[in-house]
């Protein structure tokens, strides 16, 4: 039974295992994972450190920094700042490091370089 998740398209006759094994695709996957995994671990650690501090280090979080503003509020606002910063960083990284190589692979697939049986399939391209 075919998969209903997609309709026949430009990729219908592609040998995906062959694409997967190319150095170019391996590089795309490496670039993607080497960014998103460490980043995900980092922001989750920072978030849980913050939650633990708010939970178990109330005195520290209640220390006044300036006027009525305490450490807890500053760290909370820094969570906002880090979220915005990581968002911007990821977009910058994808635009420069991921999108060009993904587009290149897509063009090669659409140019039938990876068709099964070696023969070209006409008219499937959008």
């Amino acid at each position: 039974m075919g998969n209903e998740a997609h309709t026949p398209d430009a990729a219908a006759s592609v040998d995906f295992e062959q694409v997967q094994s190319t150095g170019q695709f391996q590089e795309l996957r490496r670039r993607h994972r080497s960014f998103v995994f460490p980043m995900a671990v980092a922001f989750l650690l920072w978030y849980f450190a913050y939650v633990l501090l708010a939970d178990y280090a109330v005195d520290f979080m209640s220390t006044k920094v300036w006027g009525n503003i305490n450490v807890g509020l500053v760290l909370g606002l820094l969570q906002f700042v880090s979220t915005f910063a990581i968002t911007g960083w990821y977009v910058h990284y994808s635009n420069r490091k991921l999108d060009p190589i993904a587009t290149e692979i897509r063009h090669e697939i659409e140019g039938h370089e990876f068709d099964k049986n070696g023969h070209r399939v006409g008219g499937a391209n959008k």
Binding site: H6, D9, A10, A11, A12, V14, F16, E17, V19, Q20, F25, L28, R29, H32, A102, I105, R106, I109, E110
Partner: peptide, 13 residues
């Protein structure tokens, strides 16, 4: 292989 290639390159989406 198909899912991984599709997910990262957007081919056929």
């Amino acid at each position: 292989a198909e899912m991984e290639v599709r997910s990262l390159t957007g081919i056929g989406a």
